[in-house]
Amino acid sequence: MTRAALLVLTDGRFPAGGHAHSGGAEPAVKAGRIRNADDLAAFCRGRLHTTGLTSAALAAAAAHGLDPLALDEAADARTPSPALRAVARKLGRQLMRAARATWPSAELAALAAARPRGAHQPVVLGLTARSAGLGPEDAAHCVVYETVSGPATAVVRLLSLDPFEATAVLARLAPSSTGSPSRPPPPPASASTRCPQLRRRCSTSPPKRTPPGRSASSPRNHPPGAAPCTSTTATKDRPP
């Protein structure tokens, strides 16, 4: 049953609209940075290890039950481009509509109420996976696949690239997408080890659902202004 849910969620026909997004491939084609299947493979590999890893970690954390509003804030800090933040929220809102119709849950309703204009898509996807009875690793795989399937589909259209070749690129990326011995698998385990922010939340949060609301991360107290001057220290510690 859960495996079927994963297929429904990952299917390009799932009415969430995310599959229409090229993930930056369109401008890259226009600028001549993607001209053939090899360029597409390099582009996808670059996305996998940057935006793919970050998004997968966010989705896995949401599927794990961490506070989606804190994750949404973490996603903002990891998305410097306002255009991309707007797209991520628009896609998140579209996915939320489809998700609430497909796998309704109190957690989805709470996030929709707290972010009426949309939360970041990977966070919504993680929570959707959770509502569908899927685990963090399923959510991560789903995001990782979307990270590369969007550009591949777009490049087929933009370059009239042979769809067989584009699909072969995706298949050859599978070892990077699912992890290899030299590169441990993506979330939940490795995303949290490579993402101290998430690891800290993982280690301090109970594995059960965190109620929606502000994150538990404590605002750091600044040292009182007692020190009359500015201090700068530089140290070096060379191990023996």
Partner: peptide
């Protein structure tokens, strides 16, 4: 003010995950 504002990481060079020198990075 205790909230995340920017968090970025980039890895490149020999041994870095693939694609760092490609069109996406």
């Amino acid at each position: 003010a205790g909230r995340p504002l920017l968090d970025q990481q980039l890895t490149y060079g020999p041994g870095a995950p693939g694609g760092w020198d490609g069109a996406a990075v």
